[in-house]
Write a protein that binds this DNA or RNA. Structure first.
Lengths: 118, 118
DNA sequence: CCAATTGTTCAATAACTTTTGAACTAAGGA
DNA sequence: TCCTTAGTTCAAAAGTTATTGAACAATTGG
């Protein structure tokens, strides 16, 4: 069983920008990038919204060509389509992820990154 | 007379991405980048939409911090806020403009770039 | 002053997006 | 088989965005 994904050359720049213009989806992509190589399932993102809402955002990321979703049993394993994005839009993903990393206003997955003083 | 602009540190990544996710606005920015240094007025963009519609899109670009608009007589002179954007999001604007340059589906300002054979 | 030029504002509309809960499907383990 | 886990689908509600035309304002040249 495979879900529909656009081919690399079907990925459109305005679509990618619009889809990453949503803070929840940007947070998802940032987290995927921080765990590159490790496929994550939908459950890992529950900090960012309800199950239903994540289903919506993750479908959007897949349909735009930003992520790849593999069905394994009852899980979906989600990865960033970094090669395709880099080939299509060199430097774009890196600069977005770097900028997102500085952005304290973005929601985060996992511990809320509290700055601990010595 | 000056119009309201966000300061550099008020420019938000999700906002920039969402605003550039619109093909008309991406075309405006691409054209501004191609004429860097030369301030353009709204009339130069009439290929991309009606006067009213451009007013809307150009206001959005200004409010997001992507462009600067200077009022001179009855004209608005519009420039890209490249320094601010580069400082805030290094590499982002360049990769977007480069990618937009390859995108034949985007609307264009001026002659439709016909490939002339020798 | 008068008219033309430049661009804005307003209200209306159409279309899309995000979010929600309830109901559902499909796989896996006891 | 039955229950749990993982995630989707659907319809509804709420909100946002893009586009339009008509009316408006401000500057400038004659």
């Amino acid at each position: 069983m495979t879900l529909p994904h656009p081919t690399a050359d079907q990925i459109s720049l305005p679509n990618v920008l619009a889809v990453l213009g949503d803070p929840t989806r940007l947070a998802i992509v940032r987290y995927l990038a921080s765990k590159e190589g490790v496929p994550l399932n939908c459950g890992q993102f529950l900090d960012l919204g309800s199950k239903t809402n994540l289903s919506y955002h993750l479908a959007k990321l897949r349909e735009t060509g930003i992520t790849r979703t593999e069905v394994v049993g009852t899980s979906r394993l989600i990865t960033l389509r970094r090669d395709d994005l880099d080939r299509r839009f060199p430097g774009l993903l890196d600069s977005i992820i770097a900028a997102a990393g500085e952005d304290t206003a973005l929601p985060t997955v996992g511990a809320p990154e509290i700055e601990v003083r010595a």
